[in-house]
């Protein structure tokens, strides 16, 4: 535990709320944390696991920036207590690229399509897209828009994001970029 984490835990203990031990897997690594029960999964991912690629926008489930995969299913990490993640398998944006840093096809395609501007929303869009393509490798444009309707972007106007998903579909089917 780092000094920052120790002092945080000391402050949390002083609030009188429950302190819980939670074990789960993050991007393939077994992880155990001791945190106050009110801490959300998103806060624990960012502050205890030090994986700051998961972004927090609204913190009440509207914007989708904090979307991660929980047992392969897209989920809002801000609407889940870390305690509820006991025994679960979590995948964050940091878990998409290969061990040698090679980008996931969805990351590469989104970059190629200029699907980012400020990129605050991008981790959520990418995790939602990975979940969509995992289940439906060849979605229609309408299906892409419907699936991504739970993620907000204030920069791109969405067109380049949808283009990025369509490009990813082509790459993942083995076609040309």
């Amino acid at each position: 535990m780092t000094d920052t984490q120790s002092s945080r835990l000391a402050a949390e203990t002083a609030t009188g709320g429950s302190i819980v031990d939670v074990s789960f897997t993050v991007n393939g690594s077994a992880t155990s944390v001791t945190v106050e029960a009110r801490r959300t999964l998103s806060d624990v991912i960012r502050e205890d696991c030090e994986l700051t690629g998961t972004h927090l926008g609204c913190e009440h489930g509207v914007c989708g920036a904090c979307t991660v995969l929980v047992d392969g299913q897209p989920s809002r990490s801000c609407l889940m207590l870390a305690a509820q993640a006991e025994g679960r398998d979590i995948t964050t944006i940091e878990g998409l690229a290969g061990p040698d840093g090679e980008l996931h096809p969805v990351q590469q395609a989104m970059m190629d399509a200029h699907g980012f501007q400020c990129a605050f929303c991008s981790p959520g869009f990418l995790m939602s897209t990975v979940a969509l393509l995992d289940e439906n490798p060849d979605p229609t444009s309408e299906e892409i828009r419907e699936e991504l309707s739970g993620n907000l972007c204030r920069c791109t106007g969405y067109q380049s994001i949808v283009d990025g998903v369509e490009r990813a579909v082509k790459i993942m089917k083995g076609g040309s970029k």
Binding site: T15, G17, R38, T40, L81
Partner: peptide
Amino acid sequence: MKAPPFIYHRP
């Protein structure tokens, strides 16, 4: 946007 402290039960 953080919940207030509570006692957590996981029966």
